[in-house]
Design a protein around this nucleic acid. Structure first.
Length: 257
DNA sequence: ATGTCTCGATCCTCGAGA
């Protein structure tokens, strides 16, 4: 079972690239973020023609998340992150596919920091960590996949010293990520490739991709009963090189049995 | 400060967000 996460940076602007990637990489499950489209603007027909069923939680202009599954309809178990009725951002959706609970998240960027956006990021992170603990308690196999907007360690950024004041790399952010992992989650990419340089995002500006000036901020976390099934993990970097592409690359894992 | 890309609207150019 291949599960991927991909921040598309507008699903409609990215539709040709997305369809090309689905056809070539053939994930069984694809978690998408930054749809930047209202629910009624989701390109459900094109995605169905590509062989995928979907559940999505859109929003006009910003945010938006979706879960795609090849040949089956994801069974939606949650839409929106619990814990704050005033939170209007579409940043979380959850569904069961093939017996696995899949949480698809788009954690707030949080820049500029300090400031209200950074406060929102940390609050959202706390709520997410609380929800993640509840999922672990249920004891079922879970993958939490998405754009975490977290650079976990110095190894995950091309020039750490340039990012020390950034919301993606500040101590509070990295500490929140460590606390989440400490519940028992496995960072799949890092677990399989402990010493490799792995990036999932390259800024559009200053030729970041051609310089390989990247960040690893898209993550797939596995619950304890799922971690032993992890067989392979990678980044579809070639997609980032395409025309009219997202600033993120699809990131995936392969689970056995 | 800059660089680039997307969306929406006070709409053909700009600001916000990333």
């Amino acid at each position: 079972m291949k599960i991927a996460t991909y921040n598309v940076n507008s699903i409609n602007a990215r539709l040709p690239v997305l369809l090309h990637w689905l056809a070539s990489s053939k994930p069984d499950v694809a978690c998408l973020q930054e749809l930047k489209a209202a629910d009624e603007k989701f390109p459900v027909e094109a995605i169905r023609e590509a062989g995928y069923e979907a559940v999505w939680h859109g929003q006009k202009a910003w945010n938006g998340v979706a879960i795609l599954a090849r040949g089956e309809k994801p069974e939606e178990t949650r839409r929106g992150l619990p814990g704050d009725l005033d939170d209007t951002h579409s940043r979380y959706i959850e569904a069961i596919v093939g017996g696995v609970t899949v949480g698809c998240l788009y954690l707030p960027n949080g820049n500029p920091a300090p400031g209200p956006k950074f406060e929102y990021k940390l609050k959202w992170f706390e709520r997410f960590t609380t929800h993640a603990a509840g999922l672990l308690k249920q004891g079922s196999p879970v993958v939490l996949a998405g754009d975490y907007n977290v650079i976990p360690t110095e190894r995950d950024v091309y020039q750490p010293e340039r990012w020390v004041d950034d919301a993606l790399f500040l101590p509070e952010t990295r500490e929140a990520y460590r606390r989440l992992l400490a519940q028992g989650w496995t960072d799949a990419l890092r677990h399989l490739h402990p010493d490799e340089t792995i990036y999932t995002f390259w800024d559009y500006m200053r030729g970041a991709f051609s310089r390989n000036a990247g960040l690893r901020i898209d993550h797939l976390l596995l619950s304890p009963e799922l971690a032993p099934r992890l067989k392979a993990a990678g980044v579809d970097k070639d997609v980032r090189a395409m025309e009219k592409t997202s600033d993120h690359a699809p990131t995936w894992i392969e689970l056995g049995r």
